Computed example of a mutant assay.
Amino acid sequence: MTVDPRVKEVGDIRTTHLFDMVVDLDPRLPIGTGPFGHRVLFGAAGGTFHGPRLQGDVLPGGGDWALFGPDGTMRLDVRLTLRTHDGALLHMTYGGRWATPPALRDAMSDPAERCRIDPTRYYFRTNPLFETGAEPYAWLNDTVCVGSGYLVEGGIAYKVSQVL
């Protein structure tokens, strides 16, 4: 097969660490099984984020309107509000996928066990985007990020990187 001559070298995708975030979760609200799968709301009860250029708190009130497919893959639909250490508000949204191998599903459903599972054994990736009117953080409005998620006691955690 011939390579299309319009294809150009654009360089490798590079990233840099933006922040680590822990989101404390309210008890899940099972919305039920509908035409697209089983919908569950994981409400955000608070949390924190810390990185070299950003730090602050995750405000209560956001959440993940997760959709579980028949194959066990969770499709994320997350909206959060972050307050930086200096009082700026950031609207953070992301989708993503969380795929758990069948051999881990029983352990993941056990609250006492799920946080002990090595996160390299499942696939949990996100694509955070930001919106803010705060001038010191306006650079986030044009920033694409990627994140890796994992379970922690009482919630979820992410390592978020900025795509350069």
Rank of each mutant, 00 (worst) to 15 (best):
136 P>W: 11
23 V>Q: 11
27 P>V: 10
70 P>Y: 02
99 A>T: 14
108 M>H: 14
35 P>N: 04
127 N>R: 08
37 G>L: 02
81 T>V: 08
70 P>T: 09
17 H>R: 14
15 T>Y: 09
18 L>G: 07
74 M>C: 10
112 A>Q: 11
117 I>P: 06
69 G>A: 10
130 F>A: 03
103 A>R: 15
96 G>Y: 02
21 M>Q: 12
86 D>Q: 11
100 T>Q: 07
100 T>M: 11
88 A>T: 01
13 I>W: 07
97 R>F: 10
84 T>R: 06
68 F>H: 03
54 L>I: 09
75 R>S: 06
116 R>I: 00
50 H>C: 07
17 H>E: 12
61 G>F: 02
94 Y>W: 02
88 A>H: 11
27 P>D: 13
73 T>K: 06
113 E>N: 03
97 R>K: 07
114 R>F: 08
58 V>C: 08
119 P>C: 06
72 G>D: 08
17 H>A: 12
49 F>T: 04
72 G>E: 05
105 R>N: 12
121 R>L: 15
93 T>K: 05
97 R>E: 10
84 T>F: 07
127 N>M: 09
131 E>M: 06
19 F>W: 10
90 L>V: 03
109 S>Q: 14
34 G>R: 05
28 R>F: 12
87 G>T: 08
52 P>E: 14
115 C>M: 05
25 L>K: 13
107 A>C: 12
69 G>E: 09
76 L>F: 00
85 H>S: 14
95 G>Q: 07
81 T>P: 00
135 E>M: 13
123 Y>H: 13
102 P>G: 13
14 R>K: 15
131 E>P: 00
43 G>A: 15
40 V>L: 04
45 A>T: 11
72 G>R: 05
27 P>T: 08
76 L>C: 01
65 W>Y: 13
53 R>M: 09
52 P>M: 04
106 D>M: 12
123 Y>Q: 03
74 M>N: 06
39 R>K: 10
62 G>P: 01
111 P>H: 10
38 H>P: 00
32 G>A: 09
79 R>N: 03
104 L>T: 08
50 H>E: 15
120 T>P: 01
18 L>E: 14
55 Q>F: 06
50 H>W: 02
123 Y>T: 03
87 G>C: 06
63 G>H: 00
16 T>K: 15
92 M>V: 15
131 E>C: 06
21 M>H: 04
124 F>K: 03
83 R>D: 01
63 G>T: 03
24 D>R: 15
54 L>Q: 08
71 D>S: 07
45 A>G: 13
85 H>K: 11
87 G>I: 08
44 A>V: 08
39 R>C: 02
50 H>K: 13
59 L>I: 09
41 L>P: 01
132 T>A: 05
97 R>I: 09
110 D>E: 12
114 R>D: 02
57 D>Q: 15
70 P>N: 09
38 H>Y: 03
52 P>G: 13
14 R>S: 14
119 P>T: 06
25 L>V: 14
63 G>L: 03
79 R>G: 04
27 P>H: 11
65 W>C: 01
56 G>W: 03
104 L>S: 12
